[in-house]
């Protein structure tokens, strides 16, 4: 019985955003990564082509993180003591992108200095040819103090600077504008908040081709359903033609999942939770996969095994069925 395949035709499409710049474009990256460009819901190959695959970023830090799950610290071991070595290892583990998280304080307990931040970023750029996403420690004034010199020191590399939030986007956007970088805009799981922030950023003159949006997610078991649905709604709005939602979406899955008790704690937990490492990896891969299904364009992860599994799934999802 021949069945009429129901195809959606959308008036809108997501912008394509390119991360990183190679030598020809004023940077030093060995590879650049383009994301976005969707003209349909994720992987609906029977409607239109999917121009770019979701990219996977590995999260590293400028210094050995104290509060990361023991499983991650055990896996990365001494590698995590030097961001350059760590970045290279992340590249070898198959990452498309590196997300470098700057810490609030140095190993000596004193606040991270702009010089130290710039040195860490430069060493990572030298160690890997991958495009870079750089997040400040997450406190408005500290972020500004560190990200501005970092932006200047990496002019032309098209790194992504984060996080722009409603209370703290001006300085970061200005730094991106002045130094040919990109930004990522984070809002709290709400379509209208995301639109508003994108409007504010574009009003400052930064072309939307240089903006990613992070609608925020929760981990599996801790609010993932909100992340899943807000991303579906944002993507539907984009396809329906709402310009201020037509940006690729980035989600920090590793950060969210590795702080859950399931991933962080191996002792004195219910026996029904099963093997700790496998459980923690599943927490990360299943959160990632759920969000890939709802439209994530960049997924930031922390464990290479998760990256391997999610990559295998994306490979399959990108294969156009005959």
């Amino acid at each position: 019985m021949p069945v009429d395949i129901p195809k959606d035709k959308w008036p809108g499409e997501v912008r394509t955003v390119t991360l990183g710049a190679a030598a020809a474009n004023g940077g030093t990256r060995g590879s650049v990564v383009a994301v976005g460009g969707e003209k349909a819901l994720p992987f609906m190959h029977f409607e239109t082509d999917t121009p770019h695959r979701p990219a996977l970023a590995m999260e590293i830090m400028d210094r050995l993180p104290e509060d990361w799950s023991p499983l991650l610290l055990e896996f990365w071991g001494d590698t995590a003591k030097d961001p350059a070595v760590w970045a290279k290892a992340a590249e070898d583990a198959g990452a498309d992108l590196i997300q470098l998280q700057l810490s609030q304080t140095g190993a000596d307990g004193n606040p991270t200095t702009p010089d130290a931040a710039v040195a860490a970023v430069k060493s990572v750029l030298a160690a890997t040819g991958l495009p870079l996403i750089i997040f400040g420690p997450g406190q408005a004034d500290v972020d500004n103090e560190l990200l501005v010199p970092v932006a200047e020191a990496t002019k032309g590399e098209r790194v992504v600077l984060g996080l722009c939030e409603d209370k703290n986007y001006r300085t970061i956007v200005a730094a991106a504008l002045a130094n040919d970088h990109l930004v990522t805009a984070r809002t709290a799981m709400d379509v209208n908040l995301a639109k508003q922030l994108n409007i504010l950023i574009s009003d400052m003159g930064l072309p939307l081709e240089r903006v990613l949006m992070d609608p925020t997610t929760g981990a599996l078991g801790y609010g993932i359903e909100y992340g899943f649905s807000v991303m579906e709604r944002l993507r539907l709005a984009a396809l329906q033609g709402d310009a201020m939602t037509q940006l690729p979406m980035i989600v920090t899955v590793g950060y969210e999942t590795w702080k859950t008790k399931e991933s962080k704690v191996g002792q004195d937990v219910p026996g029904e939770w099963g093997n700790w490492l496998e459980r923690a990896i599943n927490w990360e891969t299943m959160t990632a996969m759920t969000l890939v299904e709802s439209g994530a364009d960049i997924v930031v992860l922390r464990h290479p095994e998760s990256m391997k599994r999610v990559r295998a799934a994306i490979d399959e999802l990108m294969t156009v069925p005959e």
């Binding site: 599996l220 026996g271 099963g274 093997n275 700790w276 496998e278 459980r279 599943n282």
Partner: peptide, 12 residues
């Protein structure tokens, strides 16, 4: 269906 596979699926 070892617990470390079933538990996250049930939660999801």
């Amino acid at each position: 269906y070892a617990p470390e596979y079933v538990y996250p699926l049930l939660v999801l």
